[in-house]
Design a protein around this nucleic acid. Structure first.
Lengths: 197, 197
DNA sequence: GTCATTCTCCTAATCATGGTAGGTATACCT
DNA sequence: AGGTATACCTACCATGATTAGGAGAATGAC
């Protein structure tokens, strides 16, 4: 008469704790910088001792790996939302919306951007699984470029280098400001002219 | 009758040892990456024990600091040499020569570039003294821009972001190759068009 | 040449950090 | 109720930056 339990309480608890640890890690990263993140700081924040974190993550790099995946997944979600909200018909305007979505996301959190794009530590390499959303962002960009007739790999390379350059310059030289990002529209106009859009 | 000693042997030896340590540090950085540099590796290479390095540098960050200064000084020297070798009359060609000098220097050594442009560790901040050549590079660029009639700060910002973006993309996505740097001429042509040169 | 001083390196030890081993109490299922 | 897996804990270890204190060699004054 007893129904088969439809929930796996252990798995739920485990997942909740993992999420809690990751949230704590993000908080520490924002506060002290992604490279200064220590297991002690994370453990303190979730009320554990550092070794206990190993019940949930195989290593510190595994935490970085999960964060890396979350960061790119968030980026992917943001860009999909921008795309699905209905892009302008004008190709330049459409590109601008997509690029702005990326840039705003990237600039919003320096630690997150460092994790996404810089080599945070010598031995951390994202796992294939965590890498997936990053590839999806790249493909989404390529697909969008294709819809407006840009298919040359070199065009996308140049475009991404320019946008990435603005983001990096912004975070490096004027964090919190808009000295570089305010030139995004201009840069895209320049690229569009160059691409003959 | 005895001449006043014209050499300070202690200072010479001291300076030579400092240089030796820095050379060892560069070698380790190239081999293992700038972030993986340890005092043990450096000490091994110069035949010392790690604590002995403290007779010559106040800390590991002081070594990074000296390397930072050397890296930017080398960049400054390279760009001055390019400029003094006689730039083409054509503004586009002249800019290209200068930018190429910078890009080639930046791309030649990933560790060096990370040290120059990325935040290598949370607590390392270059000293004002080490920062000087970096400022000089910036001023040299601005001066050169001024000679061809570009004085708007925003133009130099955009230019530097584009060039920096190509360098970062090159080192991050195709280290050792030329997938991005081969687009430098094209990018400069695009910028020149946009600037109305 | 001798001697005091300074330099340069050493060994020993401390502290922070990532990570491992092994134990214990609790939550869960039967 | 009882057995098992889970989720923590405490003790340890290794590495790496850094400090303390000492010993031997280079230097310069006499």
């Amino acid at each position: 008469m007893v129904g088969i339990p439809t929930r796996d309480r252990v798995a739920e608890r485990r997942e909740a704790t993992r999420a809690e640890i990751l949230n704590a890690a993000w908080a520490v990263a924002q506060e002290k910088g992604i490279a200064a993140l220590t297991l002690k700081d994370v453990a303190d924040r979730v009320g554990m001792r550092p070794p206990s974190l190993y019940s949930h993550f195989a290593s510190k790099n595994a935490i970085y790996d999960a964060m890396f995946g979350q960061a790119w997944q968030g980026c992917l979600d943001t860009m999909r939302a921008a795309r699905d909200a209905g892009l302008p018909d004008d190709p330049r305007a459409a590109i601008t919306v997509m690029a702005r979505a990326y840039v705003d996301y990237a600039v919003a959190d320096q630690s997150r951007n460092q994790l996404m794009n810089a080599r945070i530590s010598a031995d951390f390499r994202p796992s294939p699984a965590a890498y997936l959303p990053s590839v999806a962002v790249w493909e989404l960009s390529r697909d969008h470029f294709a819809t407006i007739g840009l298919t040359a790999e070199e065009d996308l390379d140049l475009f991404s280098a320019v946008v990435g350059g603005l983001v990096d310059a912004q975070l490096a030289n004027d964090p919190g400001g808009d000295r570089y990002t305010r030139q995004l529209d201009r840069a895209i106009g320049m690229l569009a002219d160059h691409f003959g859009l």
